[in-house]
Amino acid sequence: MMQPYMYLLMILIGIGTGAITSLIGASGVMIIVPLLTMLFSVSVHAAIGTSLLVDVIASLTVSYAYYKNGNIDLKSGIWIAIGSIAGSQLGALLADSMGESNLSSSFGVILLLAGLFMFFKKSNDNKTTSNKMHKRINFKYEWQRIVASLLIGFAIGILSGIFGAGGGVMILIALIVLLSFPLHKAIGTSTLIMAITALSGAAGYAIRGNINLTLSLLIGIGSIIGGALGSRYANKINENLLKKIVGVAFIAMGVIMTMITLFTIK
């Protein structure tokens, strides 16, 4: 039986997850999975399944806040969502066939790479640069854009199913580069698509019994609080500073998780 402070800790983890989702459109998996495995001794598979379910809760909360501000356009991004649903099922199947140590070490590497990317990546609000990126992808026919969106969504879904990430950042990039979305509308739309992708992945993990409902509920409650508060102040925080802070946290967790995996392999 868990101590009372553990319940509070899970809610705090959820608050942090919701805040990150609302501020930078990223999945909470990179917080939830390492903390559940390191602090609560949850298996990697169960931690990933649980994180996907929390992603659904957090993403719906955040996307609703963006919707109220007119910053969601799912019609244009629906093909990415459809592709991601199929891909996440394949990803969940692949993850189930991976060994615990392989999945854990792979996730540690993903954390490290994501942390380094976020730490060194600077926000670019330069419209000229953005327009140049848009011109690199020029579709002559609408069906070409649809096929490209489906393939991108499928790839994002596979990664989501394997590592428990709703794919928010990758969807965000796809919406900006592929579909030329304005930034705020891209964040709102990608968060809603992330909820759909995460739901599909969570279903795949639930079928295999890899979701802890108690942890999902407690962390999910926290994510609603964090998501609602974070969405309110999303445009008031220096993005570069926030990315560096989160990047350092991801790098630290990635190193710790990788080291634990290496030292526990017999």
Rank of each mutant, 00 (worst) to 15 (best):
G87K: 01
L262K: 07
S84G: 11
F119D: 08
G227R: 01
I24M: 11
P4L: 11
K68A: 12
N210V: 07
L8F: 13
A65N: 15
K75L: 09
S160D: 05
I193D: 02
S160C: 06
I13H: 04
M1D: 14
T264L: 11
T37Q: 11
V33C: 07
K68D: 11
P4N: 10
S27V: 08
L74T: 11
K132A: 12
K68L: 13
L103P: 04
S104K: 14
G188C: 05
I245M: 12
I221A: 10
G157S: 06
L111M: 13
L179K: 01
S101E: 13
I176D: 04
I251H: 04
N235T: 15
G222C: 03
P182E: 09
L35R: 01
A19V: 13
I48L: 10
A155E: 02
I260Q: 14
I156Y: 02
V109W: 05
K244Q: 15
L215E: 12
G25K: 03
G222I: 05
I207C: 03
I176S: 03
L175I: 04
A249M: 14
S59M: 08
V246H: 04
G108F: 07
I176V: 15
I13V: 15
S101M: 11
T214C: 06
Y66I: 08
N131T: 11
M118A: 07
G77D: 06
Y67G: 10
E239P: 04
E100A: 14
I137F: 10
G247C: 09
L8C: 12
S105W: 06
I207G: 03
A95R: 01
N126H: 11
G220D: 08
N126M: 10
M259Y: 14
A114P: 02
P4V: 12
A92T: 15
R145N: 04
K266T: 13
T189Y: 00
